[in-house]
């Protein structure tokens, strides 16, 4: 499976002079339609933001477009949703910290491991390297749903084939509850594992392309594989690493199914997505707080997205085939 999706699908770039010259004069009709769709596409997010900065009594009295008539704005909703209060027993803050604590390792570790695999496959000659590569990349076909149930059982009860323990049962002898549940560990492990097939594929594309002469020269100078990997491969693969890092960051930040399965909605470990989903599903929804919470949760990925858009497009196109 040596397809290189991001190579094949051309990415946004500067028009070559010829193409620009050939381009017809911009059509006003096209411009109007595109602007109309752009406005339509932006309104939902604007509505969320506007609702989140209106005082609570306003949000009950009129829709967010009512801000045209009464321009009162407030940050109260944000203060309340961050710290909790009378209406919300708990604020979003602990969950936000959980998201950060989950995202960091779940982004860094899979990239590192994938680079290692890619290096071994590309630059440490061994029989079956190709089979290992295809085998790992092909694992992308497995949807996350295929792994959830057994993984949850494994983390909470351990796993053994007959009497042979393959994964230890890490129960706390006092509570009888697994030591792993209620920590970030299952989330880190699951996100790392799920990311590996695609990450290996992408990192291999980048690392296999390092000029052979450089590696050979280093080998002749007596550099070990480990030195080459740390001093040459990682720096040279940095653009590819950055592209995948953005993709993986957004994926983990926005994930819901893994969080829900392995962290539930406890304030100790659960990220913002289950918190918001619970808030949205609760009775007597408090729009002003829900919108403020949702805006806090989406503003960081959106900022990352606007800053690093080009890389993101690249990551998505390839990530498209992800499982």
């Amino acid at each position: 499976m040596s397809v290189e999706a991001h190579e094949f699908i051309p990415l946004p770039r500067q028009d070559p002079p010829l193409a620009a010259a050939r381009r017809r004069l911009s059509s006003p009709v096209a411009t109007v339609i595109v602007i109309a769709i752009t406005v339509l596409w932006t309104i939902p997010t604007v509505g969320l933001f506007v609702t989140s900065i209106r005082p609570v009594w306003q949000t009950k009295r009129s829709g967010w477009w009512g801000i045209v008539e009464d321009r009162t704005v407030t940050l109260d909703n944000y203060v309340q949703v961050l710290t909790g209060g009378e209406i919300l027993p708990e604020g979003i803050a602990p969950y936000l910290f959980n998201t950060v604590a989950i995202v960091l390792p779940a982004t860094v570790i899979p990239i590192l491991l994938a680079c290692m695999v890619a290096y071994a496959i590309a630059w440490v000659p061994f029989r079956g390297a190709n089979i290992v590569f295809v085998g790992i990349v092909a694992l992308q076909v497995l949807p996350i749903q295929m792994t959830l149930l057994p993984l949850l059982t494994m983390f909470s009860n351990g796993w053994s084939i007959g009497p042979v323990p393959i994964f230890p049962n890490l129960d706390n002898p006092e509570t009888g509850r697994s030591l792993l549940m209620g920590t970030y560990v299952p989330l880190w492990l699951v996100h790392t594992t799920m990311a590996l097939p695609l990450a290996v594929f992408l990192m291999h594309n980048a690392i296999a392309r390092v000029p052979k002469e450089i590696i050979d020269a280093a080998r002749i100078d007596g550099a070990s594989h480990y030195v080459i990997f740390r001093r040459m491969i990682l720096p040279l693969a940095l653009p590819a690493i950055a592209a995948f890092a953005i993709f993986q960051f957004l994926w983990v930040w926005n994930d819901y199914i893994v969080a829900l399965t392995f962290a539930g909605s406890s304030a100790d470990v659960a990220p913002v997505t289950p918190y918001l989903a619970k808030l949205a599903g609760g009775y007597g929804v408090h729009e002003h707080l829900l919108t403020a919470g949702a805006f806090i949760a989406i503003v960081i990925p959106i900022a990352v997205f606007f800053l690093l858009q080009r890389h993101f497009a690249r990551g998505l196109v390839v990530g498209a085939v992800d499982g």
């Binding site: 596409w41 926005n254 994930d255 949205a280 989406i298 959106i302 990352v304 997205f305 858009q309």
Partner: peptide, 17 residues
């Protein structure tokens, strides 16, 4: 950029929106 932006929003966030 603006039409592409929802791609950065989680499904849960989009659901709330």
């Amino acid at each position: 950029s603006l039409i592409f932006m929802p791609m950065a929003i989680s499904f849960v966030g989009a659901g709330i929106i």
